[in-house]
């Protein structure tokens, strides 16, 4: 077995036999097949995960992903292998659930005049909070009856500046219909779309490190938190700390939406799973409600 040199990230980190064994395992777990021509792609991502998990070697890391009871590291690797940059209406089944299930359920417990507060974290370059805004305006018939605040945060100041600027590539808006493109965007140049000022001005962007309790403590009384495809990159303790922090950020009976490969049951039992059609989200108990 080849040794992993963390200082120089020397490749290869695995023998051909180990690569074949990994690919067979990965295929069994995910159905995704990699061949010899993808070895560099696969190894680069495994090197990243070996470093982040403080594994000593490929063999050590492979043992972990095969036997880790929670399966969270396997999910992190899957995500790294399959997910690239964000884009508008990514995992849009959750946005469907937002307008057809979550918001209607939420407002049953709200008084007229109460704001609906939504937090998108990490918001990256803004596609998620803008998608939430467009989805609500276009598809929730009660949108005009409520004050809806959307807050969006990220740890990366550079990406936040991009989010505030609201300029997106053609690839980023690839899933936006031409009607919505015309309504909410202006085409600046061939490959750049500028989102309208009304939307840019309606979202509060802020720099937040989600694992810093001093930074997150002002964020309170949110009704819905979108935190998708972030926690898989954390270790077990940081993951627990983050979802427990979200518990305090949420109003009673508030909801958390996680990414498709993330499951709250592997992190904490203090939220209740709620299903809206085929979408599972997680709810903080309401006042006086017992925990599961």
């Amino acid at each position: 077995m080849l040794q992993f040199d963390r200082s120089s990230e020397t490749l290869p980190i695995m023998t051909d036999d180990e690569y074949a064994k990994f690919c067979a395992f990965f295929y069994r777990q995910t159905g995704i097949e990699y061949h010899d021509n993808k070895k560099y792609y696969v190894e680069r991502r495994i090197v990243d995960r070996i470093a982040k998990t403080n594994s000593e070697s490929f063999r050590d890391y492979f043992t972990m992903i095969r036997f880790q009871a929670s399966g969270v590291e396997m999910q992190a690797l899957v995500n790294l292998m399959t997910v690239n940059e964000t884009y508008f209406f990514r995992e849009d089944y959750q946005f469907d659930a937002l307008v057809t299930g979550i918001l209607p359920a939420l407002v049953k417990g709200k008084r007229r005049g109460d704001p609906i507060r939504i937090w998108s974290i990490p918001c990256s370059s803004g596609e998620e909070p803008y998608s939430i805004a467009i989805n609500i305006l276009e598809r929730w018939e009660q949108a005009d009856s409520w004050d809806i605040e959307i807050h969006a945060s990220d740890i990366d100041s550079r990406i936040l500046a991009e989010a505030r600027a609201g300029r997106f590539s053609a690839r980023s808006v690839g899933r936006v219909s031409s009607a919505l493109l015309s309504k909410y965007f202006t085409r600046k140049i061939a490959d750049e779309y500028q989102i309208c000022d009304a939307l840019r001005g309606s979202i509060d962007f802020s720099l937040v490190n989600v694992i810093d309790p001093v930074q997150t403590r002002p964020f309170r009384n949110f009704d819905i938190i979108f935190c998708r495809n972030l926690l898989i990159y954390f270790d077990d303790v940081a993951r627990r700390e983050t979802v427990e922090m979200f518990y305090d950020c949420l109003a009673p009976a508030g909801y958390i939406c996680l990414g498709h490969s993330e499951s709250m049951s592997r992190m904490s039992s203090i939220f209740r799973p709620r299903k809206f059609k085929d979408v599972v989200v997680y709810q903080k108990p309401g006042p006086g409600e017992p925990l599961p």
């Binding site: 704001p115 507060r117 805004a133 609500i136 305006l137 949108a143 005009d144 009856s145 409520w146 004050d147 809806i148 605040e149 959307i150 807050h151 009304a198 939307l199 001005g201 309606s202 979202i203 509060d204 802020s206 309790p213 001093v214 403590r217 002002p218 964020f219 309170r220």
Partner: peptide, 18 residues
Amino acid sequence: MGLVKGPPPAAEAVPLAA
């Protein structure tokens, strides 16, 4: 009504971590 820009969450005067 509809989308409104909420005030930025205010930092606490004395961080609880202190």
